[in-house]
Simulated assay, not measured.
Amino acid sequence: MLQPQLLERITARRAELDEFEEQLAKRLAEVRAEWDELAVGERVFERVSEQLADERASAAPAPGQVGGRAVLLTPHRVSDVGAFSPLCGRPPGGSWPGRSARCRESTSPCGPSWNHCVGGWSG
């Protein structure tokens, strides 16, 4: 009577182990798929990092010489036409608050300018 019970326990344990093996195989396949995704992500990251490094290197100011001296050349920046510049006239939409009425309008290379006051700031 002991033999049939022992065989039954062995058979039940084999079924448990088979089920566990299937779970592990499925989990192993998921882990391998994630490893593959990480490898792709790593390659993309390296490629983008190299592109950014190349762009930064090409955008860096270039060394040059002026009058025999080493200087750093920077690209010319074009300012926004509507933006305020203290060197090129009044702020958009009007004159300076508190400015004396004795200010006369003049023209600079940047356009009309209200920064040429006869009497300075009013106070």
Rank of each mutant, 00 (worst) to 15 (best):
E21K: 10
A33Y: 01
S85R: 14
R102Y: 06
C88Q: 13
E8Q: 15
A101V: 11
V81A: 13
A25V: 15
P97F: 02
V118F: 07
D18N: 13
C103G: 00
R27H: 09
R90I: 00
R104I: 13
R104T: 14
L72V: 08
L6D: 10
G119S: 12
E42N: 05
V118D: 15
R90C: 14
D80I: 01
G120Q: 05
E46I: 12
R56P: 04
L7C: 07
G67L: 15
E55P: 00
L72T: 03
P75M: 02
C117W: 02
P92M: 05
L7K: 08
E16H: 07
D80R: 09
S58M: 10
G93K: 09
P86Y: 10
F45C: 11
S49V: 04
V81E: 07
G94A: 12
E19G: 04
F45T: 09
G89A: 10
A25F: 02
F20G: 08
A12W: 11
T74E: 14
P92D: 03
A62L: 09
G93R: 00
E16V: 05
D36R: 13
D18A: 14
S79D: 14
T74Q: 15
R32I: 05
L52R: 11
P61F: 12
P63Q: 09
K26A: 14
S113T: 02
H116V: 04
R32F: 00
V78S: 13
H116C: 15
H116P: 05
W121L: 11
A15G: 02
P63H: 10
D36I: 06
K26V: 08
R104H: 04
I10G: 05
L52G: 05
E16M: 03
A25G: 02
T11I: 09
R69T: 15
E8D: 10
L38T: 01
E42T: 06
G120Y: 12
G120K: 01
R9T: 11
R9C: 14
S49Y: 13
F20W: 00
P63V: 04
E34C: 04
L73M: 13
S95M: 03
T11P: 00
E30L: 14
E16R: 13
W96E: 15
R14N: 09
L87W: 10
W96R: 09
A59Q: 05
V71E: 15
